[in-house]
Amino acid sequence: MTAQLLFFYFGGMAVAGAVVAVFTPNLVYSALSLLMTFIHIAGIYILLNAEFIAAVQIIVYAGAILVTYVFVLMLFNPEQEKRYFHKQYKIGAFLGAVVLFLMVFAGFKTEILSKGGPFTVEYVEEIGHTRAIGNALFTDFIFPFEIASFILLVAMFGAIILAGRGIKKPKGPGGRVDLSSRRKAKEAIVGER
């Protein structure tokens, strides 16, 4: 009973946060309501006995990714965004509807719900969620896990190369960054004025 009430609270707040994040014109409010969503989703993970995922959810999404977003928002102080329909909104709406339909459809498929894996509540409670997820990740799922980490590594290299493009290495002790080459690189991206 308590678990159900808590689930509705966490779920409702997560959805409400997401809705506000999409509809508010103020980008900072948007980021803050997204923070609310992340924290409440962590609450749902705790209800599912997945406390490791809950902590990682807060550390990674709330503590790292969203902080970076807010950081960028404050650095550039963007204008208040006006609501408008993007040209491709029809395709977007169609794809969104398809995904939503598939999710609802999957939710009602009883064989997915009734199918129990080896990771029952009793098993997870006995050996601890962190150990259970570690065992699964580093034995059965080691290949997808390594692939994912490799893709992240490639993305990291890409980001570093993109950000460092056109900045010449400073020469000698106390050398300064050559600004003219950076300006050239900027012109190459933005185009001649």
């Binding site: 490791f52 902590a55 550390i59």
Partner: peptide, 22 residues
């Protein structure tokens, strides 16, 4: 005594940055 105590502390200390930033 929760079995992810250390992660719990790290998770909430990372939230503190929001207050300072905002």
């Amino acid at each position: 005594d929760i079995n992810i105590g250390l992660l719990y502390v790290l998770a909430f200390s990372s939230i503190g940055a929001y207050g300072i930033l905002l």
